[in-house]
Computed example of a mutant assay.
Amino acid sequence: MNRSEKGSARHSAFAKRNRHKKGLFLPMERSAANKLVLPIRLALETLRRGRGRRDAIFSMVEVTLLVGFLIEAGDSVISKETVDSAERRLHRALEDLGGSDGMELDPELVETLTVVVNEYDRVLREARLISILEANERLGAFTHAAVAERRHLDA
Score class of each variant (00 low, 15 high):
Val115Ser: 15
Leu26Met: 09
Leu66Lys: 10
Phe142Leu: 11
Asn118His: 15
Ser12Asn: 03
Asn34Ile: 11
Asp106Ser: 08
Asp96Val: 08
Asp84Pro: 02
Leu94Val: 05
Thr112Leu: 13
Ala9Tyr: 06
Leu70Gln: 10
Glu72Leu: 08
Leu109Val: 01
Val67Leu: 09
Gly98Gln: 01
Ala141Glu: 15
Pro27Asn: 01
Arg17Tyr: 10
Val123Pro: 07
Ala135Thr: 09
Asp154Pro: 09
Ala15Arg: 11
Gly50Arg: 07
Leu153Arg: 11
His144Met: 13
Ala86Gln: 02
Phe58Pro: 11
Thr64Gln: 08
Leu90Ser: 00
Leu105Ser: 10
Arg92Tyr: 04
Phe58Cys: 14
Lys6Ala: 15
Ile71Asp: 00
Glu62Ser: 11
Leu97Pro: 04
Glu95Ser: 10
Asp84Ala: 00
Thr143Ser: 11
Ser4Gly: 05
Gly68Ile: 09
Glu126Asn: 15
Ser12Met: 05
Thr46Ile: 13
Lys22Gly: 01
Arg48Lys: 15
Ala15Thr: 11
Asn136Phe: 12
Arg54Trp: 09
Asn34Tyr: 14
Leu47Ser: 05
Ala135Gln: 03
Arg125Ser: 13
His152Tyr: 13
Leu109Trp: 02
Leu36Ile: 10
His152Ile: 13
Leu129Trp: 01
Pro39Glu: 12
Glu149Lys: 15
Leu129Cys: 11
Gly140Pro: 04
Glu108Arg: 14
Glu87Lys: 00
Leu90Gly: 03
Val77Asn: 10
Ser131Met: 07
Phe142Val: 05
Ala9Asn: 04
Ser85Gly: 06
